[in-house]
Simulated assay, not measured.
Amino acid sequence: MTRIDAKFAKLRAEGKKAFVSYVMAGDPDVPTSLDLVKGLPAAGVDIIELGLPFTDPMADGPTIQEAGQRALAGHMTLDKTLQMVRDFRADDDETPIVMMGYYNPIYSRGVDRFLSQAKEAGIDGLIIVDLPPEEDDELCIPAQKAGLNFIRLATPTTDDKRLPKVLENTSGFVYYVSITGITGAAEAQAEDVAPEVARIKSQTDLPVIVGFGIKTPAASESIAAIADGCVVGSAIVSEMAKGKAVSEVLDFVKTLADGAHRA
């Protein structure tokens, strides 16, 4: 059982929905980013998605693209991202961390070497948005064998014919993308998302977590209410981009987490 599996079991036992937060590693710099990540669990975050900066983030909207550019301008690397996780794990051995990013940096490192380093650092799962199920032998299957969950995205365009393929080797949870398009674009609507979540849940026992387009505590609550939890990314990254103190950003995160936990 991974930390992700254990976290969902604990939430189920407590009758709570999951709140997942996305932050970009190294934005605006490593010390500030690490302070933010370390503060997330106390702000109510159940699972941390840690973005790996990449030069060509095709699924990301302007907010997260710019966060990645700030991180890269500050010389953020895969090695420094792994070290951030180690530093976090020095004080927290319970909160799951999912690395979210693109395949190129992993391919460049070498899959076996990367998985060994990720596992040793304390990463629990991967979301690699540019590897389709047809490429599962490339990273998904090796990751599962190494003890990491491989979390797949389902979208509004994932039809009934495609869905079983998407779910086939997915573990940890299913990430449902609530809107078509890039991150940080339109706002998610619970009435649109609910039938899709029900459709996915009819095909898998995995938790279904909804992300994209969730920007407020009210939206966090309404979306978590029709799923097993929600993800907020761009809204949090936007607060960092304004140059706010980490404590102010964490206060904002807590309002979002409280919303999800009310669901």
Rank of each mutant, 00 (worst) to 15 (best):
L115A: 06
D79S: 09
I151E: 08
E196I: 11
T158R: 06
Y176D: 00
A143W: 05
D137A: 11
T170R: 03
G181V: 00
D160G: 14
G172L: 04
T180A: 09
T183R: 00
Q65E: 09
E66D: 11
M84I: 12
K119Y: 13
D124G: 12
I123M: 12
I141W: 06
I200M: 07
L167G: 03
M76C: 11
E94C: 05
I123F: 06
D92H: 08
A194Y: 09
E94L: 07
Q203M: 15
D112H: 09
G125F: 03
N149K: 05
D79V: 01
I127F: 01
A198T: 12
L139K: 04
D160S: 15
H75T: 07
A188D: 00
E168I: 05
D124K: 00
D159S: 13
L148C: 08
G147Q: 07
D112M: 05
A198M: 09
P142V: 02
M76W: 02
V177D: 01
L72W: 12
L115T: 08
Y103P: 00
R86T: 11
K161D: 13
D79G: 05
S171Q: 09
K165T: 13
R162F: 14
R113T: 11
D124E: 12
D159M: 11
I141V: 15
Q65S: 05
L82A: 07
P195V: 14
G101A: 02
V129E: 02
P164L: 04
G101E: 00
Q117H: 14
I123N: 04
L72Y: 14
E196M: 14
F173T: 10
I64C: 06
V166F: 11
L206R: 07
L115G: 08
A143R: 04
V197M: 09
R199N: 08
V174P: 06
F114C: 05
T81N: 01
Q144V: 13
T204N: 10
A71I: 07
T180Q: 10
I200K: 04
A118S: 12
G125I: 03
E120H: 13
K80W: 04
T170Y: 03
I128K: 02
E138P: 00
V193C: 02
G110S: 14
E196R: 14
E191H: 12
A185Y: 00
S116R: 14
K161T: 14
A121W: 04
L131I: 09
E187F: 00
K161R: 15
A146E: 12
T63G: 10
Q65D: 06
I128E: 00
Q144I: 12
Y175H: 12
F173H: 09
D137E: 15
R109L: 05
G110Y: 10
L126D: 04
V208G: 04
G101P: 09
V129N: 03
F88E: 04
L78S: 06
S171P: 02
R199H: 10
D137N: 07
T170A: 15
Q144P: 01
T63R: 11
P142E: 01
S202Y: 05
V197A: 08
D112V: 02
T155W: 10
D60Q: 02
V177Q: 03
A143S: 15
P132T: 01
V177L: 10
D137R: 03
F114V: 05
N104A: 01
A90I: 08
E191P: 00
G147N: 11
Q203V: 14
T170C: 15
K145R: 10
D137K: 03
E196D: 13
A186N: 12
L167C: 04
P195H: 13
L163D: 04
K80E: 09
E66G: 08
L72G: 10
A146R: 09
E135Q: 15
